[in-house]
Design a protein around this nucleic acid. Structure first.
Lengths: 190, 190
DNA sequence: AGTTTCGTAGACCGATCGTTCTATCTACCG
DNA sequence: CGGTAGATAGAACGATCGGTCTACGAAACT
């Protein structure tokens, strides 16, 4: 009945992998993961079947968390679609300026995992479409003339801002993106 | 006096590395590079000092070529800054839809090379600033109210379009980006 | 000719890769 | 108490990593 001060090996592995794959890329060594997680070698293979299984599971878990963060961010901004969408870009400002920010984890994953059949790609692709759907839904509620295109543009602005945040210190990518996002959001039918 | 049908080992290595680092990432093995280039192991270390030296040299060479392509694209579009800038986004459409496109090589490099002191980062950073400068120059010629910000936004659109082109097949990122680019270009002072 | 230069071919180094294995310890459950 | 499940520690596997080395071949330059 003692309170579990530390989570089990599965959870520790996921946390370590989540951190290390972001800071060191998908190429982190198994040894580094095991050492950071303080987990026996065998536990990794029993819980995830191997390194790829662990990496894929990390992607699943973080995409779900990040999608939930999008929803929370928008919900915290009220019910007005315009405010809900702009809130995403306000939050983006905090994300890209956070210490240790290295760009979009999922874009990095897709570029790093050169095997196009790696199961991680399906996870990131689904995530992007879900986020795009969230954006499109708000645009549709706004009566946007081309909600699908608008959502693509907003997602492009998000990815572009994260790329700039990772590579061009000194600029303020989120503010620049937010300005363009407002243009997209306020687009009128021609 | 015989005509050199095949370039020397240094050139072959650069070409092989340029191709393999894009398709398989910066993590390509030295053996794969040597085999593709048909070059002796020793030649790599004599010409480039090691794998990192080769990779850095590839980045230097490709950034110079890509910067020249920006200039050529704009020059081919005439002298009007607005047309010159829009031509960049037209050309971007060809780039991101080309078979085998896997996203921006330099963003991938920055995300893959987790060591922040890797010499490759300096090369990609300088490249981005040069391209940004090219864009800013055109905006300035246009009398743009905030040329520096506008250039940041255009670069963000380029990076966002390349990210979308690499990860979201079926969309038309360049067209979506071009639309927003026109907004940036035509921005009037408030 | 002789010699220097540049290249290839390939063995070899220690380190690390992802994975599988045995052995041991511990907690919980009947 | 005995038994089972889940965890740990760590040796060991073959493969590959980046890098160094020796030995040999072919052309170019006095």
């Amino acid at each position: 009945m003692a309170i579990r001060d530390t989570p089990g090996p599965r959870e520790r592995l996921l946390q370590a992998a989540q951190s290390l794959t972001y800071s060191h890329g998908m190429g982190v060594g198994v040894d580094a993961l095991l050492k950071t997680a303080n987990v026996a070698r065998r536990s990794l293979y029993e819980h995830f079947g191997g390194k790829d299984g662990l990496l894929t599971e990390v992607l699943k878990r973080t995409t779900e968390a990040d999608e939930a963060r999008y929803v929370e961010t928008m919900d915290a901004a009220g019910t007005e679609p315009r405010e809900r969408l702009l809130a995403v870009f306000d939050a983006l400002g905090d994300v890209v300026t956070a210490p240790g920010f290295r760009g979009c984890r999922y874009l990095a994953a897709d570029m790093t995992l050169s095997d196009p059949d790696h199961p991680g790609h399906a996870v990131t692709r689904a995530y992007r479409e879900r986020v795009c759907g969230l954006l499109e839904r708000e645009l549709r509620r706004l009566g946007h003339p081309r909600p699908a295109l608008g959502a693509d543009q907003l997602l492009m602005l998000i990815d572009g801002a994260m790329a700039a945040g990772a590579t061009r210190t000194g600029t303020d990518p989120a503010a620049a993106a937010r300005e363009l996002a407002a243009v997209v959001i306020d687009a009128k039918a021609t």
